[in-house]
Design a protein around this nucleic acid. Structure first.
Lengths: 213, 213
DNA sequence: GCACTTAACTTGACAGCGTCAAGTTAAGCA
DNA sequence: TGCTTAACTTGACGCTGTCAAGTTAAGTGC
């Protein structure tokens, strides 16, 4: 039915047109509306207007769809962090704080999607599309950490410290929302914590990373 | 069948004896063996040797069982942290580090259970049994943080900083395990990160918390 | 313009899932 | 011994992911 209501009435390349992306769109919508519990292959197919078995031609089962949704999630995640970074002052610390705010903004506004991206056992983290999207997100944070002094363990220790702190804070504050009783989490902002991390901007060396933007 | 092989052959209070705990045992076993994807009400019932509908008399559906499993998980979690703490030297910093090691030891050895305890949307975080068990675990960490100086946001900021860092590190290192390619995470230990947190033991005041143990 | 190939999608079936209603068994008690 | 009630079983329901087979339509060679 109403298959003719495609964006291009002239030439629909196949039955649907772009079912792959449409199924991911549907999945993200359902994720936002009902959480991961309501996310089903059949539900995504129905929302995209195709039969319950159509997704099998584009994804390797449920795991494949979830992996593709997670990959899309990482791209949106990267966009959110970059957007916040570009609205900040061009100082190392303020840029990093802006990235952190973007990180938490995304995790709070897309809780179920964020959860799927990180903690689900139903996602194939070996998938190239996903690891690529995930690596791009990580790179934004790593770039934000680069201008600071690192300990003997090198820059990775700084990156993991920030990334862990944000990931943990995001997960805990999400859990605190779902709890009835008052949680100590509720009164603590990320800006109360970040100053207690040992982060000193390097002043000696120049030119290595400061070229970009 | 072999219902008579109970621990007390004398007086089995009812058909099974202690199905409530047996179902949680079964659930944790299945969780360790197959991950959360293989955890089903019917599977737990089968492992406990009862029919597929028996769990309904002890738990409010799947959510109830998962919530009870999570609560049990928090108690095991608390035990692990306390055990590590009591094997450490009686200095504030070493005690806190020991608690952190206990935290990560548990999360690494019980990945699926840990995941269920924190990030699942299928658990009822308003359940009194669960919030109680969860609060006891939090208290161990809060006690470990108490001897240190806190910023203007009070002790909660220190607690949330440590808790977030551990929770994030646990989740990311778990994710790194599931990824094929080399992850920057793999080379960084928690002991590379903890020294970069601003944590100064209070030396002036005495007697407030140092009484215990 | 027409047959051929192949990708995209549909239809129908299957077992396994959580949940519910109704029936059965056994424990505790008067 | 008979009654009440908690513990558990049986059977059914709709929903799920997945698979096999059939159908439709797009692309291609002639």
């Amino acid at each position: 039915m109403s298959r003719t209501t495609n964006r291009k009435t002239q030439k629909t390349p196949h039955h649907h047109g772009d079912l792959y992306e449409a199924l991911i769109d549907a999945g993200i919508e359902i994720l936002q509306e009902t959480g991961v519990a309501g996310l089903t292959l059949r539900g995504c197919a129905a929302r995209a207007g195709v039969s319950h078995s159509a997704p099998a031609h584009h994804f390797e089962g449920m795991e494949g769809l979830l992996t593709a949704i997670a990959a899309r999630g990482f791209r949106l995640f990267t966009e959110t962090m970059i957007k916040e970074r570009e609205n900040s002052a061009d100082k190392p610390r303020e840029r990093l704080v802006a990235i952190c705010h973007g990180y938490l903004q995304f995790s709070q506004q897309n809780g179920s999607l964020y959860n799927l991206m990180f903690s689900s056992e139903r996602v194939n983290f070996s998938n190239a599309n996903l690891t690529c999207a995930s690596a791009l997100a990580y790179q934004v944070l790593a770039d934000g950490c680069a201008p600071f002094e690192h300990g003997s363990a090198g820059p990775a220790a700084t990156e993991i410290m920030i990334w862990s702190l944000l990931h943990g804070y995001a997960g805990l504050s999400r859990k605190a929302q779902h709890t009835d009783q008052q949680h100590p989490m509720s009164n603590i902002r990320i800006d109360d914590i970040l100053p207690h991390l040992e982060l000193k901007a390097r002043t000696t060396k120049r030119g290595s990373k400061s070229k970009q933007q």
